[in-house]
Every structure is written in C-alpha cells, then in structure tokens.
Design a protein around this nucleic acid. Sequence first.
DNA 1: TAGTGGTCTAGACCACATG
DNA 2: ATGTGGTCTAGACCACTAC
Lengths: 237, 237
Amino acid sequence: MTKPLGERIRSQFEARILSGELAPGERLPTEAELMQQFGCSRMTVSKALSALADAGLIERRKRAGSFVSRPRVHSMVLDIPDLAEEVAARGQTHRYRLIRRDVSEAGIAHFGPAGGQVLALDGLHLADNVPFAFEQRLVDIAAVPDIADVDFGHLAPGSWLLRHVPWDEAETRIAAEGASGSIADWLDVEPGTATLVVERRTWRGSDSITFVRQHFRADQYDLVARFGQRSASRAPA
Amino acid sequence: MTKPLGERIRSQFEARILSGELAPGERLPTEAELMQQFGCSRMTVSKALSALADAGLIERRKRAGSFVSRPRVHSMVLDIPDLAEEVAARGQTHRYRLIRRDVSEAGIAHFGPAGGQVLALDGLHLADNVPFAFEQRLVDIAAVPDIADVDFGHLAPGSWLLRHVPWDEAETRIAAEGASGSIADWLDVEPGTATLVVERRTWRGSDSITFVRQHFRADQYDLVARFGQRSASRAPA
DNA sequence: TAGTGGTCTAGACCACATG
DNA sequence: ATGTGGTCTAGACCACTAC
C-alpha cells in the first residue's frame, strides 16, 4: 500500500520545492545525509535525486551538492495527434481527400538530400464532410521507401507515417495566417479568413522524414498542449 | 572516455528501435539475459531499460517482459518562453504597457476559488515600439499574494510570474482568430486580420495560478516547438 | 505457480570540480 | 586535497500477472 521509499523521498522534495519551502538556489542535503535521515542506502537516495534532476527541479554538481533549480525555461508537452484519430474521438467522421501526388527531385523547398526523390502529397482533411484542414506534405522517399506503394487516395499520409515511421526529432512552427485564394477555396471560407498554420518537420537521426504544412480552419480546430516540467534529458543519438 | 555501460545499453536499444531493427511489439531480452550478454549486474540493465521506458520507447510488463512500444501518442516539447526574453534575444527592445489593472471577486471566467480575489491585468507587448501581442491575464491573489505589491506599469506579468512562481501543471490552447475591433485597435491592424491566440492556464498542485489569453499579430510572431519523445512519467502531486 | 520486473541493500571505485 | 555525485556490483525480497 505505501509507496516505495525512493518515490516518497522524491515526492517529498518535489512538494517542498513547488511550495516554495525550498527556494531556488537552496542546497539540498548530501546523499550521505539523506541516507541517515531516511535510513536507506545510497542507491535509493541517488535514484530519487536523479529523478528530480531529470524533471529539472534540481541541479546536481559534483563536489558542490544538489541545488533547487531556478525556475526554468518553461516548456510544455504539446500533443501532436493523428488528425484522423482526433476527429474520430470527437465522434465525427474523418475523411482525407488526396488532391495531388507527384514525385520530384529533392532540393525544392530545401527538403530532402541532394539528388534524392521527394514525394509530394497535397490533400484535404474533412470532418463530417466539412473541410477543416488543407495539407501540403513532402516525404523523403529514400528515408521511407515503403511509402511509394501506399495508396493515399483516402488514407491520410500523417496517419500512415505516425504508425509506420519512428522519429526522434521534430520541429513545429505554429502561426496564424489569412487564407490565400486557393487555400480559401479548399477550406470553403472567404479569402483572408484567419487560419491556424502548423508546419512540422521530423527527422530520424540525421535523415529528414517529412515536412508538412497544414492550414486549419480557425472555426473548426485548435491545438491543446498539456502539462509541463521539462522533458527528460536524453543522450545524443 | 568510453560512456558508462548502462548508457551504452540504453543507446544501443534506442538506436535499434529507431532504426526499425526492433519492430513495435517485439520482445526484448529479459533482464537476466541482458546481464549475461553485457556481463553486468541486474541494476545496470534495469536502469537502462527503465530509462527507455521513461522515454516511451519500450513498455515493461511484469511476468511478460519488455516490448518495443507502438509508435506513441506523439508529443513534442513546446517552449513557452518569456516574451520579454524572446524579443530581447532577437535583438529588439521589449516593452510592456499596462492597460488595465483591477481586483475583482473570483468566479468570473470560471477562474479562481470561490470567494477569493482575482487580479486582472490587461496589457500590450511591444517589440521596438511596435505592438505584437495584446494580453489579458487573471492571477489568483490567494495563490500568489506577493503579486499585490508588484508594479506592472512596465514589467510584463508573465516575466515576473515565470521567475517567482513555480508551477507543476499547465494547459495551453492555441488557435487562430480574426482580430475583433478593440483588439485590432491595440495591435494596430485592420479588424478581421488573422491573429494567433494563445490561452494558458497554470496550476501549482490544485491551485490555479494564472490564466492568460494573448493575441499575437500574425505578421510579428509565431511559436516554435522543438523535439519529441514524450516526457518522463511523473507521479501525481 | 513460476517467471518477470520493482525495489532495495551495503558495500565499492572513480571522475570531477571546488576550496 | 577532498568531498561530492556517477556508476557499478552481487546479492535479496517482493508484487504482480500471464500461463
């Protein structure tokens, strides 16, 4: 019933830091002192403090000790859901309509390795047959050879990619933009209407996987990002 | 020079999973087998696998073993920078101009504890004296009593809060919206012009800290979110 | 019920940065 | 020089759950 000791140590310090009882810059007891206080081995204390360090709540410095972090560069976890799943979760019917598919040399739009081939896929996402997102996507065929055989007539490329291609790095740009003429046509809104623009590029190792630019109808879609404390530190790939 | 053994175990499996050599659903060796393969103790193996599980790359199930995760609910880390710092980092001058400050009873806008007092702060962010964001903010005075004494005439409340109030939970909504009349006036754009709207609410434990709604001029600002793999799992507060 | 991961111990050696 | 964290060992007991 009672939580593991290491977890109790971790959560106790978490609470004391978040409450302000332990101020930023303040020094925590050493591992040796905590062993005595909690009557446990050093490994247990070490794991608890390491977890706090991974969460960004403390910083650990050799020969100096462990210190409460200054309030950090705040970051949040932004869920990037599969549009098809998200629409379905709302109880609506998702449909993807392919508008254009062609293969071209890389280099255009600064995407893909020199000399490689790039698959371009333009399409429209509809919820209950109402268009809500216009999507332009590029995929590096060399990085994802299987994609050449997939029929995207009604399957959204993003849905397929999320299920088949693991990635380890991504960058997303989020902006607002008035709909230009052709995009306004596809989204069935007046030109100049506000749209939410999401551009995302993903990599696996040093290979670009895909670049996508999505225009969302402002009245049909918004993004929600939840929760914070920074992500765990990771070693370089 | 050589990396710690546990880290080598971790990164080896990370690479094999990301490359696809280990497919989703595939079972990893048991801890006992890995002890033999790497000639190390069980703790070392366990820590490496736990790190992979924290990163979401594998799932560990008692009595069954460790398995490569299905490509996950994809999430990214969205940096929510201090606007003042961000503008300064671009080499521009940031200025905040307070428009309205008053204290009211909670309950309005579904913010704050019943009966408590809420500080409302409206203001304008300017970069090189050009307005780029109109901000409406509510702060729970009971949760942040110090704020009553701060002069926000030119100091952005977000900057102060980020430096003084730790939080452990937040939710952000991002949308596009045509500027309404008064907001268009403050941002010095035509009504109906696309703006990026960011709404964020933060908590410490069960206390609401602040709710903020920011309208950004689309031509002056966009958000950038970087990198992925989900954040470390955390215990409830 | 037996195999698996979850946690913990009581040591140990080492690297490192600070005093 | 020395105290600190980083890592590792070779065990151990337990909880859980799939078989």
